[in-house]
Design a protein around this nucleic acid. Structure first.
Lengths: 333, 333
DNA sequence: CTGTTAGCGCTTTCAT
DNA sequence: ATGAAAGCGCTAACAG
């Protein structure tokens, strides 16, 4: 069915050398007489030979492939993370095996196992919702795991994430500096590490500012436009004097924007709205979103670098926290 | 470095059977005495054995992995296509190897080769910009290639695309039905197959309507918001009576929207604006975009199905054209 | 029903 | 500097 591919023995026979010599030429290992080398190279070229990575991997135990597990590649944030990771991988001759889990724990586990079976050299696991001890079990058994948007756990090579806590604090401080004290944090769905970090940032900033009780509130919501819309509608309804909506991410913020329009609240005059991520959406909605930028591609790239360093023998755990930065636009000037 | 994994011989020894028997249990091939089967299964479970897919692939010539090559996973359209493809792959026990090419022909080729070296069972190539004859060379040599957003070429299993031509015609007809005859098509960057299809649709619809000469115009532009902005600004500047901007995709449309605001042209009163894709952005901008919806996830899913069918022995070339549909929103009611 | 033998394509010894 | 032999972990083909 498939055209039979040329093997190393075909090349060896044709070049009248042993497969060993061909292998050496291929890998640049051991001394080879230049003429032999040239000759073999010529035959390889003429036959259009390409080594079978599978066979090689079977003996070297290396596949030059990294598994990347994300909740949903359709989410622009993760798409950018994956893009950053794949770029770095490609530069180093590695490939990326991609899995979506929708943050369903069972799917995270099965993706992990499926990917492991293919003998990837490492795994980048994004925004995992697995319980910490389960995660530690996996990373202890399976070397070469890097976490993204998650705190480091025992056994992992390390973790890469944006400084969600500081980013959220910046956003709150900006609101306070503009005199907006009656703030509701539309905090997304609880449970994940980045959720915890942002909540922590919110609370710290509020505490530091010594607000009156009741001025700052937290409301959970589903982390998409509809969730943001519903939550914001509820807030606008029950808390007529709210001055700012701080949102878990840009998607939530966009829903909130819509709720404001409906409730005849002008943004930013009546209500400030702030998002999170600075996704492609943020600068495209009207009014343009003030939002906390996370260095998305860089997160992916750094995670891949961490992994490749590890594969090259570097040791020790690494916890890389990339700065998040408030980008001020029209929705909260 | 890596914990030595358990092999099939470990299981065989422990269960006091041959590796063959274990293999049969694993693959459900051949008759096995139920008790033996149970026993082997128990040992497998106790040892936590997982078969090495690499070794298996080396002999079966199958990897249960499909390569997917896209211009840029950061583009929401391709992210959705990949998501659809990966979902289908997962349902069938397949994995996805992902590559970004930025539509640079050399990168397309090297991705193709790199992926081939890993012995993927097939390749899904999206929106290729390779010349047709080069593409045909690749697909002739390499079985199991499915094209996305491209016409079928010789040697390929088939192609899956949205009906860009009909979609564009719908959009034009909608404009004409609303009495908008002075239309400029911001046609994106020429060269790709979907570009050609949309242009064809535009021309056909215009021809059928027997417009006055000069009423319909075409202007090329870079296919992103900035490109759309610049092109629209130019049009608005030089053609004050333009009644509608038909855009190559939603990104271009968003740029056009901005240009309209700047030029003090109200959308849709003064100028109608129509996008293409119905990406996540379309319903999030103000005014919400009328746009031609392409079934993104379905495109990916159908492409993967085509490939899996082929791998299961189905033959013949397939050209799947999925309907594109105008979604009417505020920017062109 | 189950075991034995061979071999997938490559690299790693160990010779020469 | 090059070759021969062995083996990575698994399954296909043939025995029994």
């Amino acid at each position: 069915m498939r055209a039979p591919r040329i093997t190393i023995s075909d090349v060896a026979r044709e070049a009248k050398v042993s497969t060993q010599t061909v292998s050496r030429v291929l890998n640049g290992k051991g001394e080879i007489r230049p003429e032999t080398r040239e000759h073999v190279l010529a035959v390889i070229d003429r036959l259009g030979y390409r080594p079978n990575a599978l066979a090689r991997s079977l003996v070297t135990n290396r596949t030059a492939t990294v598994g990347v597990i994300v909740p949903d590649i359709g989410n622009p944030f993760f798409a950018d993370v994956v893009r950053g990771a794949e770029d770095t991988a490609r530069e180093h001759g590695f490939n990326v095996l991609l899995c979506n889990t929708d943050q369903i724990p069972e799917r995270e586990e099965s993706a992990f196992l499926a990917i492991e079976d293919k003998w990837v050299d490492g795994i980048i696991l994004c925004a995992s919702r697995l319980p910490d001890e389960r995660l530690a079990q996996l990373t202890r058994r399976r070397q070469g795991v890097v976490l993204v948007s998650h705190e480091p756990v025992e056994g992992a090579v390390g973790a890469v994430r944006a400084d969600d806590e500081a980013g959220t604090m910046q956003a709150v401080q900006h609101l306070l500096a503009r005199g907006r004290r009656r703030i509701t944090f539309l905090a997304g769905k609880p449970g994940g590490p980045s959720h915890r970090a942002r909540l922590r940032g919110f609370e710290r900033a509020i505490l530091a500012a010594a607000l009156e009780p009741g001025e700052a509130q937290v409301q959970y919501c589903v982390s998409n436009p509809t969730g943001g819309y519903l939550a914001a509608r509820d807030v606008l309804d029950t808390r007529r004097d709210v001055e700012a909506l701080l949102c878990f991410n840009d998607l939530v913020a966009i829903g909130a924007l819509r709720a404001c329009v409906e409730a005849k609240q002008t943004v930013p005059e009546d209500v400030y709205v702030i998002g999170f991520d600075d996704s492609i959406l943020a600068s495209m909605v009207q009014p343009q979103l003030t939002t906390v930028r996370r260095p998305k591609q860089e997160v992916g790239a750094r995670a891949m670098e961490l992994l490749l360093d590890y594969l090259n023998g570097s040791t020790g755990q690494h916890d890389i926290v990339l700065p998040a930065k408030l980008v001020i636009r029209a929705s909260a000037p």
